[in-house]
Nucleic acid binder design. Structure first.
Ligand code: ZN
Ligand code: ZN
Ligand code: ZN
Ligand code: ZN
Lengths: 156, 156
DNA sequence: AGGCAGATGATACCAGGTCTCATCTGCGAG
DNA sequence: CTCGCAGATGAGACCTGGTATCATCTGCCT
């Protein structure tokens, strides 16, 4: 089962209808390298001569976020992006500041640390966000910066 | 030296002019409990019958952010806020989801953890963001939720 | 096959933030 | 002390990302 199917399945399992736009969103999200914005998706939809309303894109992203199929990142440059990720386990993201590729990072020791911080300050901690930004191995190697443009979409 | 003076001083030390609006911004920021938005500051300025342009508020916040006198938070509800903090040492924030009060949290073991994550994934990590959200001791005690409104501004 | 809950796209709207520009002023040189 | 100008300001246009509304359409269960 490929990534696209998995996403479509996520919609179904959560009781949402399977519609053409949702299938398209699934494909576009699955075919993304690195992170993407709502606008990116809509552009890519247009490139395929498919028309999707802006609202629909946002609605799909909202759903996928709630299903934890994608996660919303707050980039250091104060913009946002979404990134495909593993719905099954709490984790964080290590994101390449150049090409946007991201790897999931297990929470590991962090949970303990977070817990302790809460205890020390008398807060009952509800959620936490950890985001790591840096240069990925590929970009470090190639160095040209061209990777950004090159990897907007490609085979999974 | 009180908080307001410290902020004005930060402007001066960085070579920026000391103007009425900046002094006002310093007072408003210093007089904030918990986090605040640009709009909050402008409202509070208006309440004092002082007129400050919206752009000026943003410009001041931008400066203060670059001077690390305030830090920009990305709240879980996908809105933003600024919070006064210690410019002298890298740290993170533990923020009350009810009243917005925040405490600085030393980086501690996190630096090591971040480092290791970078190494394991072959990324050269440049920056990281950790934000913790929960209920502060005061709100846990009072429980009413009234704290939100009650603490918008007050003596430092 | 039929009906309707749910989904869609267009469009208006909103918040938060940035840009431009004409005007004003803090402050260091003299 | 006063003068001049770099730097700061406010007004308002503009932009981006996201939400709300609403009339229309369609997936899907019966
Ligand atoms: Zn990269
Ligand atoms: Zn975690
Ligand atoms: Zn609180
Ligand atoms: Zn840190």
């Amino acid at each position: 089962m490929d990534q696209t199917t998995r996403i479509v399945r996520a919609f179904e399992d959560a009781g949402y209808q399977t519609t053409p736009s949702r299938r398209l969103m699934a494909e576009l999200v699955a075919g993304s390298r690195g992170h993407f914005s709502a606008a990116d998706l809509q552009d890519r939809a247009r490139q395929r001569r498919a028309k999707v309303g802006r609202a629909t894109v946002f609605r799909a992203l909202e759903l996928l976020t709630s299903l934890r199929v994608v996660e919303r990142l707050d980039l250091p440059n104060r913009s946002h992006a979404y990134v495909l990720c593993d719905p099954d386990e709490h984790h964080h993201h290590l994101v390449c500041s150049r090409c946007g590729r991201s790897v999931d990072v297990a929470d590991g020791e962090l949970a303990r640390l977070v817990d302790e911080i809460g205890r020390r300050n008398g807060y009952r901690i509800e959620t936490h966000r950890l985001e790591l930004f840096g240069i990925c191995p590929l970009c470090a190697g190639a160095g040209t910066g061209a990777a950004v443009a090159a990897d907007r979409e490609g085979p999974a």
